[in-house]
Design a binder for these strands. Structure first.
Lengths: 229, 229
DNA sequence: TTCGAGATTTAGGTAGTCCGAAATCAATAT
DNA sequence: ATATTGATTTCGGACTACCTAAATCTCGAA
């Protein structure tokens, strides 16, 4: 039997694999909010059940089975976020925490009712793609705002949903998925990024900017886009 | 910290107290789906936390604190059933199981959004009263259809929500909260009850009839209403 | 009033998830 | 090549919720 804990470990492993090519015990410990010792134990269990490939001291990778379990949970999470936002009018900085608990308990039947009612949405309120029922998902390139050169025109594609404070702030600054912006400058030491959004200009710290994923509309002439390390 | 298990034990104890004046270990074991031994252990724990008064070999009673925890869970359950039925169009024989899992994980905030959206409903789809936010609830007299004399006119007030098969059957027979009916006869040995609903007449077994709660509209002349044992 | 039958509790055990502390490993700097 | 450091695993232990089997209690029938 699969528990909520299992689902969370697999879901976070999936999320970490998108951002890093190597997922470690401590990264997972940080995400699931348990000690490294606990995570080691859980990874052994998950490996036994063939949901992850686990190499002690090396790290962890989802198996095909593990990935599809993770995607099912992610689908629940993102459908719920979308539903809570659209149907119940719950603000976007509150939907994540609620969905985090609901995602484990809704039936496949309720999932499909919600999906129909929303007319099979493709993205959630934070711009993240919602996996289809069959587990297919378009994982976009994930270009972080911190990695964009000065002079480039972009559109916000996705913002991290896990920090309500960040979301409330982005909301006040009118930075949402779909928002167009131009990177005016990148301050090299502290990584401060100056943006123009509509007619206003504003400055973001690198912590905030790293949580914003964009796609390029018009490249700067003066150089190439840096890759996210 | 209060767990989902705690909530379930308290909720079922509350439900049993409405139907019986004495709640025993085995009744609770049956409801929560655990062995009697497990229930004994849990009752000791719940008593320690002052949520129930527990007298070994005698039975269990909710304390004031325990009752208000139970009512909070019941409120979640019934609001969710109502929401799933009205907003999502989920049939009434499916809402119970779904609500059973959701009731433990919705926030107070989501609870109040749902309550507002439904315009503070007083009863759920099965006719059960929804406790108010402050824990107040009108617990009606609970007269079972099995205890009504022949010749009496009644209206269905409430039907048990926990057996989907029963609900599907009642639905086919058009027996819902609000339905008017007349008891034509009670067969004394097997307890078969003959009803007239609108222009049709039908026969119910006592198992089914015991799950239907009615209120009397016009008493039979020929005797008094028997009390539920 | 004693005896059972049935209900209940006690005893002993399992599985899952977590912890801190100690031991071990890997990778880097010297 | 080795020592150190930081990450990781191992170890021993805690807690919750569950089980079965055995012991115990309660209460009604004889």
């Amino acid at each position: 039997m699969i528990t909520e804990t299992d689902q969370n470990y697999l879901k976070e492993t999936y999320a970490l694999q998108l951002e890093h090519d190597h997922v470690t015990t401590s990264m997972l410990a940080d995400r699931v909010g348990a000690s490294a010792a606990t995570v080691t134990g859980m990874l052994k269990k998950l490996a036994e059940r063939q949901w992850v490939a686990y190499e002690p001291y090396k790290g962890v990778t989802l198996t095909e089975t593990g990935r599809s379990i993770a995607l099912e949970v992610v689908r629940h999470h993102r459908l719920l976020e979308t539903y809570l936002s659209k149907a119940l009018g719950i603000p976007w900085d509150k939907v994540h925490d609620e969905a985090e608990r609901l995602e484990h308990v809704i039936s496949e039947y309720l999932e499909s009712r919600i999906d129909e009612l929303l007319d099979h949405p493709a993205i959630d309120p934070h711009g993240s793609p919602i996996p289809a029922h069959d587990g297919s998902i378009r994982e976009s390139a994930r270009l972080h705002l911190t990695d964009v050169r000065a002079g480039t025109d972009c559109e916000i594609v996705e913002v991290s949903d896990r920090d309500p404070g960040l979301l409330a702030r982005l909301d006040r600054l009118k930075l949402h998925p779909g928002t167009r912006l131009q990177v005016l400058g990148v301050e090299p030491i502290d990584g401060l990024i100056t943006l123009r959004v509509a007619t206003e200009s504003l400055v973001l710290g690198s912590k905030t900017a790293s949580q914003v994923i964009v796609r390029i509309i018009k490249e700067s002439h003066h150089g190439r886009v840096q890759q996210h390390h």
